[in-house]
Simulated scan of single mutants.
Amino acid sequence: MASAFEGVEKRLEIIFSASTSNKNLREKLTRNVLHQILKPVDCKIEDLLSEDQVDAYLLSASSLFVFDDFVILKTCGNTKIFECMKELIRVAAREVNSVLYTRALAEKLNDTNLGLEKVEDAVLGVNDEKQWHILSDFPHAADNNTKEVLTVELCMRRLDREKASIFEEKTSPTSEKMTEASGIGLIFPEAKLSTFAFSPCGYSMNSVEGKAISTIHVVPEEAWSFASFECCGYEFKDDESLQQVVARALACFKPKMFTLAIRSNLPVIGGEPQCNLDPDGYSCKREICSLEKGGSVVYYYTV
């Protein structure tokens, strides 16, 4: 049987310099403008959750978040995520402070993918299913936010069959029922959610809570079951509060295998949480990688 799974998601983050005009990035990157920009990527907008600090778009192939000074785009395996970069930068009409690309899969890429001159490349993990690829450039990283921001990316495979079946139309006919039955709404109970159910199966969710966002995407078919969870912008006071969120996400799917990448935009200088996580029921291996040009650090766990 041929696989309908297009592969694990790709994530592209572009941080721009502060605006020198009255227009912020969200005013420039409107829904109509983004509709055109996303065409070469081969995905379309399904829903929009617009809040005070972020516009959260559910796409036919994952998610897009537009803040006043940066953009996060996630797309599934067959999409051409880099095809939108030049147009995003042109419309933003601002200097690029940093570009970061991640994917839970090792792949051969080169500098032309980012359209920038000096790219830092790193691969974490020991085999194809458990590798994490980071491609980055930080031409003006010193101008980025000096307050710590944690980004958590969790990729889960071989989902529990009972949990995965929740995301099938015959079991849960609406995205709201999928959200409730799976426990996804309990991960960040105060967040506002935008959800979408695919036919005959599959699910996507974006959430916004102030300046913080999270997103989930699910492919439930048994032969290639996969779910991804990401959150960014939440302030975790310690490792325990971070581990609680990871545990809630894992409980929604009970995967047999997962990779977890936690990235801080600041270098380790002492006193901050060290991301020493130990999820119940799992034996994890941990690696730490410093992105020298950007001054950030990645904690990477594999099961």
Rank of each mutant, 00 (worst) to 15 (best):
T171M: 15
L291G: 02
K293N: 08
P139V: 00
C201Y: 04
F226M: 01
A2R: 07
P139I: 00
M85I: 15
S225L: 06
V219Q: 11
M156Q: 10
S204I: 01
E168T: 15
G125R: 02
K108R: 13
R31L: 08
Y57I: 07
I45W: 07
V41W: 04
N145E: 08
Y234G: 01
F138G: 04
Y203P: 05
Y300L: 00
E230M: 15
A247T: 14
A104V: 00
E168C: 15
E95I: 12
F167M: 11
T151H: 10
T20M: 08
S290D: 07
S228P: 00
A18S: 11
L154K: 02
T30Q: 05
P40R: 09
T151E: 10
D69A: 08
V152M: 14
E120L: 02
L250P: 09
S21E: 10
V71H: 04
A212I: 06
V218Q: 07
S62M: 09
A93N: 15
P189F: 04
E148L: 05
H133N: 12
K177L: 12
L277Q: 05
E240S: 13
K163H: 03
F226W: 07
T79F: 04
V218G: 08
A2L: 09
T146Y: 02
E13W: 06
L135E: 02
S283G: 08
E153Y: 07
L193M: 14
V33Q: 12
Y234M: 05
A197W: 03
I81Y: 03
K254E: 11
L58N: 08
E148K: 08
V99Q: 12
L135H: 13
I72G: 07
P255R: 03
V119E: 02
Y57A: 03
G183R: 03
N22Q: 13
E221P: 00
R31G: 13
F82K: 00
H35M: 12
D278Y: 11
T215F: 04
F253C: 03
C232F: 14
S241W: 04
L49F: 01
F229C: 01
K10H: 09
C284Y: 07
L135I: 06
K285T: 14
Y299K: 11
Y282L: 09
G294M: 01
S264W: 05
W132H: 14
M257Q: 14
I213G: 09
E153Q: 13
T30K: 10
V8Y: 01
P279I: 10
E292T: 15
C231Y: 13
G77W: 04
E190V: 08
A92T: 05
G210E: 05
G185I: 10
Q244W: 01
T20A: 11
N145G: 02
I262G: 03
Y301F: 15
V66Y: 04
K147L: 09
E168R: 14
L154H: 02
N145M: 05
P200G: 12
A106R: 13
